[in-house]
Amino acid sequence: MQTLINLKDIVKTYQIGTVEVQALRGVDILIHSNEYISIMGPSGSGKSTLMNIIGCLDTPTSGIYELEGELVHTMDDNKLAEVRNRKVGFVFQTFNLLPRATALHNVELPLIYSGISAAKRKVIAEDAIEKVGLTDRMHHRPSELSGGQRQRVAIARALVNNPSLILADEPTGNLDSTTGKEIMAIFDDLHNAGNTIILITHEKIVADHADRIVHILDGHIAEDIQVKNN
């Protein structure tokens, strides 16, 4: 198995005025390619902070982060943007789609920033939309789509650049349980197709889709269990 992510003693401290909030207090974790990991923990335990650091949206206050052999914690903003563009696909609880753009254009967005030509973009994006089963809705705007459909668009956008890992922060948090199941089925499919998936949730049923469950408590990894073997 190939090492994808190596976090060593990651600390993240937020400064609010004179008060320091320690969101992460020394996290060590090793993640391999094609793993399917759930991160669980109570609200405020630092799950999102960890995901943002793994996804290169944020940088740790201290510690070492290695992604596919590259040292992320030393990168500048431009390099981080490039890594996000090529190696990471995000799925958020609140979908985070551009409201005025069609589903297709939303999915094309990462490709725009990797400098792919308009014609090629369209083909690749349509392909990704097909994977999440939304071909008939690709010219609709987010406001014309249901919550589940919006999350499918977001998933298509996350995988359109063929990233090394897909990060999902409570992807079913804003969905009813039936729709949530449909979304989780898509993640299962993506994992079976060879993608590395890290998903944050506080629901046990959602977490159980993964092969490995990591529990976070108060900025620490409290538990890290391999529940299935693949």
């Binding site: 431009n78 943007a81 563009n85 995000f90 920033y113 990797s114 956008r157």
Partner: peptide
């Protein structure tokens, strides 16, 4: 602001 955040999350650089 949110749109800018989204664009940055999917890889937009400062110059974009």
């Amino acid at each position: 602001t949110r749109e800018i955040g989204i664009r940055k999350a999917v890889g937009a650089k400062k110059r974009h």
